[in-house]
Computed example of a mutant assay.
Amino acid sequence: MSDIVQRINQLKEEKNAVILAHNYQREEIQRIADFVGDSLELCIKAKETDADIIVFCGVDFMAETAKILNSDKKVLIPEIKDIECPMAHQLPAEVVRRAKEEHPDAMVVVYVNTLAETKALADATCTSANADRVVNSLDCDKVLFGPDRNLAYFVSKRTNKEIIPIPEDGHCYVHKKFTVEDVKRVRREYPNAELLVHPECDPEVQDLADYVLSTGGMIRHVLNSDKKEFIIGTECELITRIKLELEKTGEEKVLIPLRKDAICDPMKRITLEKVERCLREEKYEITLDEEIIKKARIAIERMLSVKI
């Protein structure tokens, strides 16, 4: 074990801290985390922890969500510069307010990939793992859904409700990279591989996939499948996560990125050095307005009440 990992572990123990990391984090961050998961899994873990300090290795909205669910705890993020999720910032609160005025009969579901002030205006939040179930749980015929238009498309195919995307072209810049040409190219190279893509991919890519799954869903599918080859249509670090899980079982499977340049730059801002500093200096702390926390928690709790 390296010296820096030892120091991180010692600081965690001294301060009763827990490290949560998203599936898109660097390998060294995934290895030192107490829990690695997708947005839904991290929401659940954040709510369940009895630690005094939560160190969140992810982008801005994720650390905010942990704070909303743990307003009495200190929530830290190891980096504060250039850590914003571009998609989350595509749906500011004023866009939601305007859409609600235009569609007063609609309920609002926002992706957890949104800022706290946006969540505070929603009836419920969702993740890519449960978006369709959250929408179908609502007692309404029309749903304002944002910010990812492609996830809205995924939901629209699984509900009888009218889905109105807000904003009109919300998207994840990483998943927008994937094209039909990419699918055709990799399928030619690996004709026996299953294609797994994320619901943030464009509709035409989703329609060509064998399975459209959240990152957590992709992990479970690969681990439980009898197949040996998989094309992974999401951020490349998910392949790292799956390989770490395969290490535990001793299984060998072939994992092929749909695109090798599918990289989320903000996710890569966190390093071991920054995690150590974060624990030692207890920075950077997430602070939110109490009224925002109260309202946003209602939307998140509504999501968590929906059976997976």
Score class of each variant (00 low, 15 high):
3 D>L: 14
5 V>C: 02
8 I>R: 05
9 N>R: 10
27 E>R: 10
28 E>M: 05
32 I>L: 15
34 D>N: 07
38 D>L: 00
49 T>Q: 05
58 G>H: 07
60 D>G: 10
61 F>H: 00
62 M>K: 01
66 A>K: 03
69 L>D: 02
74 K>F: 09
77 I>F: 14
77 I>M: 09
78 P>S: 02
79 E>L: 01
80 I>A: 03
80 I>V: 15
91 L>K: 04
92 P>Y: 05
99 A>E: 04
101 E>H: 09
105 D>V: 15
107 M>E: 14
115 L>A: 00
136 N>C: 15
152 A>R: 04
154 F>T: 08
162 E>N: 06
162 E>V: 12
171 H>T: 15
179 T>Q: 07
189 E>S: 14
190 Y>F: 15
193 A>P: 09
193 A>W: 05
194 E>Y: 13
195 L>M: 08
203 P>T: 03
207 D>P: 00
213 L>W: 04
215 T>G: 12
215 T>N: 11
215 T>P: 04
221 H>P: 06
226 D>H: 08
227 K>I: 01
230 F>W: 05
230 F>T: 08
239 I>H: 01
243 K>C: 03
243 K>G: 03
250 G>P: 05
251 E>Y: 01
251 E>S: 10
251 E>D: 11
257 P>K: 11
266 P>S: 07
269 R>S: 08
276 E>P: 05
284 Y>T: 09
295 K>L: 15
305 S>G: 01
307 K>R: 05
307 K>H: 07
